[in-house]
Design a protein around this nucleic acid. Sequence first.
DNA 1: ACCTGAACACCGTTCAAGT
DNA 2: ACCTGAACACCGTTCAAGT
Lengths: 190, 190
Amino acid sequence: MSDEPSTTSRDKILKAATGIAQAHGYGGLNLRTLAEQVGIKAASLYYHFPSKADLAAAVAQRYAKDSAATLAALATDAGDPAACLLRYPETFRRSLANSNRICLCSFMAAEYDDLPAAVQDAVQVFADQNVAWLETVLQAAGALPEQAQRRARAIFAAVSGAQLMARGKADIALFDNLIGTYRALGLLAP
Amino acid sequence: MSDEPSTTSRDKILKAATGIAQAHGYGGLNLRTLAEQVGIKAASLYYHFPSKADLAAAVAQRYAKDSAATLAALATDAGDPAACLLRYPETFRRSLANSNRICLCSFMAAEYDDLPAAVQDAVQVFADQNVAWLETVLQAAGALPEQAQRRARAIFAAVSGAQLMARGKADIALFDNLIGTYRALGLLAP
DNA sequence: ACCTGAACACCGTTCAAGT
DNA sequence: ACCTGAACACCGTTCAAGT
């Protein structure tokens, strides 16, 4: 009765804003367009959030939180560490499959210098979480701690780059091809 | 007498616009700011270029052309193919060293869906040129044609991703670290 | 040939006013 | 409690007018 995911206005705004930001970035997040998608006027958004910066911070924080949950679920679901590593790129693939969108935080990494501080922080959290998750998995798979960190960062960077390149070509097969090459090289393993 | 690089107004505009776009993207390229940097009014930009879209297309085309020249020079300078591959990330590093800017086309790959068609084309040309250069070098280094293409794409994607991640942390040492990991993996070799 | 001020429609934002 | 219209300063763009 209380844990129902009753979609509040705030939630609707956050969800719509996330989709727009994954396709157009922070700069491309237009409040009049967003409001229209939610069915209210732009001025009404200011009842829910004090500014675009705060709205975007909430979006990025929620995105980072969801991503942490997805990674935790993947760890449980995949079972062994090797499977986790092989399946890690799935999340990134899903964005591309969803109207050629990309990871919110990849877009925002490009826009980094123009981002409000709170949004920058959330982008950092997202990246750090991903690297930490990979690091844990790599160590569980037998990597030495120091190597695990280097490798974790390399995986995150390489997969992000593959997603960006695939978006530029609007070609999800290219993403799969790149991930396949990474695998063949042994990048997605300890 | 005639080949002097006499800096025309058009050139000054293109150079300033390139720097802005590498830091803020196409969307973040503000014509009033750009005009101020050049020492004219925003309206005057329209004497040199019919629109922001055309200006950005000229910027991206010039960027792709310069990049091709830089790669050609690297090939001559480095000598053997193995050295070319090791030094390939240098160009990307230079952008980061230049006020944490990134490759124009990485930023624009993120913004891809919001780009005017002529700008999209130039972004494609840039990526294709890089992959083709890498492919040639990889084959010269002994890779089989089919493997060379896959590998060339993987290098381009991975290095782009490293640049993006390093920008997000404003940490050029992270870029070097990532490239080092790629090298250790054998990514930057045939 | 090159530049400009004034004007237009659009965007983030505010605010007084509605229910 | 939640929403809105009207207004502000800013942006891309146009254009008639300046030199």
